[in-house]
Design a protein around this nucleic acid. Structure first.
Lengths: 224, 224
DNA sequence: ATGACGCCCATGTGATCACAAAGCCCGCCG
DNA sequence: CGGCGGGCTTTGTGATCACATGGGCGTCAT
């Protein structure tokens, strides 16, 4: 049996040059939004809503959401609804322990390769962080803070390990926002200076301790 | 303008009780297949092929593949083709280091909660492993070996950390098959006995060393 | 024999629709 | 005034199709 329906509109002809697929664009945008804490914990998302915002159909929206769910950035309820996770204190502690484990190792591996150019760059990022702190801008703070860590860890030449660390950041994203919104800092992160000092001195135990402290410090406040 | 087409077949009415969604069934099946080394490195997969095998359309196949790509279980070429990854020696070493990092921590956390029932269970799994070794069954070996580790780590009560460890197993799956196919063992894993002994003795340093050795041992052979 | 060219088919992408179930809201009854 | 029920709406799921692209393979020229 046949039915009279409208011919589906052909997909937007992508420009000749390799332009990122729609689902990838949606994925990347949502990912950085979540990682930077721009979405509060427990926020509900809908496929049609995402499609509307990015002017795509449900299909690419679904694929982007699936990827994010697989990475733990979004929570999938039993009925298929998706939302940003609202982490339990136990889960937060566990993720903080993971950050410590992974990032201490990454920093340790980066240490032998850390030259002056890297240290200058870290110092510069650190002063940007100070500006965000002054402006009480939580999202800017988180973004620059992560950039500080990523810049250091890139020197470790350990892409799989860095990817895992980023996955943890992603899972903590919405919670981080809640954290840095709660405590209103007035000073830039203390431990970043210790990290830089240890890098300059080539002091591996000091570096490990400084990274562990920096990573653990903030999250501990949130649990209480 | 309208076109005469056939009405799409309505989706198979899922039974009243909550039966897993098609994309989830496909995902889980492919996941264990990859993790257990049932697929050789570099094998190409197609959405239509997966759909045919599982008797579903491309849509659930695509979602399952996306999840697996996000977990690093599959590699997505720039043109969108998917295949199991063929890891470089550097990547293998990095993943082995990740296994060591994560699993030593998991074992250490499981130690205080490890009672006799757990040790009995591990011993039993270990003898199953010996059987697979005798039969020269690589897939059975890998499956039981992972079961040994998972059984231990479940006691750590650290779901996020265990999930990360499983992600690493997943990425190593196809490579593991190549490894255990290359060397034909004749004896069950030596370090598993050391792990069990350390658990019985409550010897934390010994446990950490045994786990690290067990995890590192096999992969080192492959790199050469 | 070998290399390049070109055509065809296989494959991924995205839009759209039908359907079921879950959520939500409003009104009704206690 | 509060709890409950029913219907309407929203939402996810899966099937299908049109289209563009890229790979594979055969052919032809050198």
């Amino acid at each position: 049996m046949g039915v009279m329906i409208i011919t589906p509109r052909p997909p937007e002809p992508r420009a000749a040059e390799q332009l990122p697929a729609a689902h990838d664009r949606v994925y990347r945008t949502l990912r950085t939004r979540i990682m930077h804490g721009e979405i509060a914990p427990g926020t509900a998302l809908t496929l049609r809503g995402i499609g509307r915002e990015f002017e795509v159909s449900m299909t690419p929206a679904r694929e982007a959401v699936r990827r994010l769910v697989a990475e733990g950035a979004l929570l999938l309820s039993s009925s298929g609804r998706v939302s940003t996770p609202d982490l339990s204190p136990e889960r937060i502690e566990e993720l903080a322990a993971l950050r410590a484990l992974l990032e201490v190792e990454l920093a340790s591996r980066a240490l032998p390769r850390a030259h002056m150019a890297l240290i200058d760059r870290l110092t510069s990022i650190n002063s940007v962080i100070a500006e965000w702190v002054q402006k009480r801008d939580a999202v800017g703070y988180i973004r620059s803070n992560l950039e500080f860590h990523r810049t250091l860890y890139l020197r470790a030449q350990a892409p799989a390990m860095l990817a895992m660390a980023e996955t943890v950041w992603l899972q903590l994203g919405p919670t981080m926002r809640a954290l840095y919104g709660r405590l209103n800092r007035t000073e830039p992160p203390h431990y970043h200076r210790l990290i830089i000092a240890a890098l300059k001195a080539g002091d591996e135990p000091g570096l490990r301790l400084a990274v562990r402290s920096d990573v653990t410090q903030g999250l501990r406040l949130l649990v209480r």
